[in-house]
Simulated scan of single mutants.
Amino acid sequence: MTRILVVDDHAVVRSGLMMLLNNKHGMDVIGEAADGNEAIELAVKLQPDVVLMDLSMPGGMDGMTATSELKKQLPETAVLILTMHDDEEYLFRAIHVGASGYILKSAPHDELMTAIQSVAKGDAYLYPTATKKLMSEYLDKLKTGDSSGTFDSLSEREKEILAWIAKGYSNKEIAEHLIISVKTVESHKSNLMEKLSLKTRPELVKFAMKKGLLNFE
Rank of each mutant, 00 (worst) to 15 (best):
G149D: 06
E203Y: 03
E158W: 01
Y169V: 01
E158M: 01
E160R: 00
L196K: 00
G149V: 05
E158D: 09
K211Q: 15
K195P: 12
S155K: 02
M193V: 04
K211T: 06
L192E: 08
I180R: 08
S153P: 01
S170E: 12
V205H: 03
V205K: 02
S197T: 11
Y169L: 04
P202N: 05
D152R: 00
G145A: 04
D152V: 00
L162E: 13
S155R: 00
L192W: 09
E186D: 12
R157L: 08
H188V: 06
S148E: 14
S155D: 11
K195S: 09
S155W: 04
I179V: 12
W164V: 02
A163C: 05
N171F: 04
H188I: 07
S181N: 09
A208W: 12
E173M: 05
A166N: 07
K199E: 15
L204W: 13
S170H: 07
L154C: 06
E194V: 05
L162A: 07
A175V: 03
L162V: 06
G149R: 01
K159R: 15
K159N: 12
L154T: 03
D152K: 00
K159C: 08
E194F: 09
I180T: 12
A175Y: 11
F207Q: 01
A208R: 02
H177N: 14
N191G: 07
L204P: 08
L178H: 09
T150E: 14
V182A: 11
T200Q: 10
A208G: 11
G145D: 10
A163W: 08
E203G: 06
T150N: 15
L196R: 01
N191E: 13
K159Y: 10
L198T: 08
S170Y: 13
N191K: 03
K210G: 15
I180D: 10
S187W: 07
A208K: 02
K183M: 08
T150H: 13
Y169S: 04
L204Q: 10
G149K: 02
G168D: 05
H177K: 15
K195W: 13
R157E: 11
E156P: 05
N191F: 06
T184H: 11
K189M: 10
L198N: 07
H177R: 13
I174Y: 15
D146Q: 04
T184W: 07
V185P: 13
L196H: 04
S181D: 11
L198S: 08
M209P: 01
A175C: 06
I180Y: 08
K183N: 14
K189I: 09
Y169M: 01
H188A: 13
G168A: 03
P202E: 08
S181R: 02
I179M: 07
Y169C: 02
E173G: 04
R201C: 05
E158V: 01
K183F: 10
E173K: 02
G168C: 02
T200S: 08
W164N: 06
H177E: 14
N191S: 15
S148W: 13
H177G: 04
S155M: 02
N191Y: 08
F151M: 01
S197R: 06
I161F: 13
A208P: 09
I165W: 09
S153L: 03
S148A: 03
S181L: 07
P202C: 00
L162Q: 12
K159S: 10
H188P: 11
K189R: 14
V182Q: 13
E176A: 14
S148C: 03
K167R: 09
A175L: 04
I174C: 11
